[in-house]
Design a protein around this nucleic acid. Structure first.
Lengths: 334, 334
DNA sequence: TTACTGTCTGAAAAGGTTTTCAGAAAACCT
DNA sequence: AGGTTTTCTGAAAACCTTTTCAGACAGTAA
């Protein structure tokens, strides 16, 4: 069926070693033969079998990627950056959607191992002990993208979430707002949960605006949860003039809620998001937000994984990429 | 380093054949030995090498997926459906972002072939001759998801775009609108371009509203293009009361334009989109649109590819999944 | 001429698994 | 007991490639 190196050898009347050489070190085979072999390769549409190769080289040029929720627009840029980096390195990506399901995640790691991926990128979710252990057990090189794990020595690429949140809230404060609420991820989420909350708190504290404990509401990851959270929050603290949402999706959920309850954004309430997903610039009003360089995070994380795989180590362990405040229409001075 | 079947055999004091049997047909090996082998497998963290396996079985349990633009939210549901189907079939997906770049696409097909994917899903882009030929040349089973190719006999899963467009426009007409414009994809796009345009035309024609040739504007795939297109369109035809956008992203672009030029949606202009991407329900106003069952399209397409791979044929060649009109806030009676 | 160097090629081993085949051992039957 | 079947196991071949090794041959130097 598929043609093998043997077929090519027969067709060109040479040994298989010669064919192999033509493919991997053409200069070592004399002109005339080389031409014959190349002709045979062309004629038979020969393409070497990656299984056989992998068996010898012990690597697959394939990288595994684990994403919590592919439907979340935040990941689009991340994946795109990874893809582009993979292309320049000649690698292929296997992308898996974990759904934040432990069993499924572990199963994927096993499958990655069996398929001999050269390494794993674990994106944007807390690195639970189980995950750490199963990846360690198979001795797979891996790095964290858009997340990190203070308790382990794992290379990571992300931003400084605490500082981003701090800057977001500071922007609100500098615009004259004094009563500021927050919708945040659960605090046990050590990546976008706790740090963004801490940044929020620190900004308030440094501005002497402490004691706003009641103005925080928690939500899971999606729009609808933020809508509900906004309901709780504004029912409890109706006099808020500004809101820091821990993600753009939260911001959209909150804005929808506000609008449906007769409060205009930004006229009555200013809302700032986080992430700068693509939709942030399309939403009405366009979202003021903290931009995460998702493309770069994706790109850098693949490069870093490559570095780890080839050199066995990594120059800088925890890489923080710069974020940026993007001012659009959903906030205005008080 | 990694333990092999040999290590396990030595550890358990049996031959490698026995170990292999324990893994693939446990009932053929006697109780006591089986236990010993299983113990060895556990102790050594043995996991068979997919390269060696693939060499024998000539299949990888891996499917290749080609997506034009992963950043486009439309694909999120598609990928998710594919992933879920792949999990139940015990397959892994390799997802590639073609960027609608011909060279890159062809390179991916080659890489897929070399990596011995069992089949390819080609999603949501016109099947150019080059693509068809390269996939054919490698004799890779493949199917089309959310697109189709009338000129080739390739299995496909998608919706009836012409009919969807027809229903969208009919909804506008039934709401009393008479001056209806459209922002559509280029007509040489035979999947979402031509058919949606045809549906638009047919609805107008059947309602006796022909001759609105000037009220159509073309755009590439993204928000910004639609914004511009809306500018052209409403400058030329200022008295339109309704707009059919060939995608939700187009609808959002147009609504942004309208709003920034003092026309409220839906009060002044009704806008209907197409696709029902996740953001459609989060946008303000929430988009009236034609829902594509993207998850199901993804899911079914993997099942269909599996069917093609295992049985060599496919029960129904071109599968049309039902779409649905979703009425929200961006349209209202005239 | 002989000896040596260098270039080019093919045979064979290796990589890790599954599977076929044949043989050993056990179980059954007469 | 002898013969026949059944059950279980291990050796070896096969899958496809790369790479090492040694041999063939041509060219160069003495």
């Amino acid at each position: 069926m598929k043609s093998t190196i043997r077929d090519v050898a027969k067709y060109a009347n040479v040994s298989i070693s010669t064919v192999s050489r033509v493919m991997n070190a053409p200069e070592t085979v004399v002109g005339e033969k080389r031409a014959k072999v190349q002709e045979a390769i062309e004629a038979l549409q020969y393409q070497p079998n990656a299984f056989a190769r992998g068996l010898i080289y012990k690597k697959s040029d394939t990288l595994g990627v684990m994403i919590p929720d592919i439907e979340n627009p935040y990941y689009a840029g991340l994946i795109r950056g990874m893809q582009d980096a993979a292309v320049v390195l000649g690698h292929t990506l296997m992308i898996c959607n974990t759904d934040r399901d432990k069993e499924r995640t572990v199963a994927y790691v096993q499958s990655f191992f069996e398929k001999q991926v050269d390494g794993i990128v674990f994106a944007s979710d807390s690195l639970h002990k189980e995950y750490y252990e199963v990846i360690q057990r198979y001795r797979l090189p891996f790095i964290l993208a858009s997340t990190n794990a203070p308790e382990y020595e794992i290379p990571s690429v992300d931003i400084d979430d605490e500082r981003g949140a701090y800057e977001a809230v500071t922007h609100l404060i500098e615009s004259g707002h004094r009563r500021i609420g927050m919708i945040c991820f659960p605090l046990d989420d050590t990546i976008s949960g706790r740090p963004r909350y801490d940044g929020f708190r620190r900004a308030l504290r440094e501005a002497g605006l402490d004691g706003c404990g009641a103005c925080v509401e928690y939500a899971e990851h999606r729009f609808e949860h933020a809508y509900e959270a906004a309901d709780f929050l504004f029912t409890r603290c109706p006099d808020l003039t500004a809101l820091f949402a821990a993600s753009d999706e939260f911001a959209m959920g909150a804005i929808s809620y506000l609008r449906e309850h007769g409060r205009a954004v930004p006229e009555h309430v200013s809302v700032i998001g986080f992430d700068n997903i693509r939709m942030a610039g399309m939403f009405i009003p366009k979202l003021t937000t903290i931009e995460q360089p998702t493309y770069d995070i994706g790109y850098r994380s693949i490069l870093k994984l490559h570095e780890l795989i080839t050199t066995g180590a990594v120059e800088v362990l925890r890489e923080k990429l710069p974020h940026q405040l993007i001012i659009r229409e959903s906030t205005q001075p008080f």
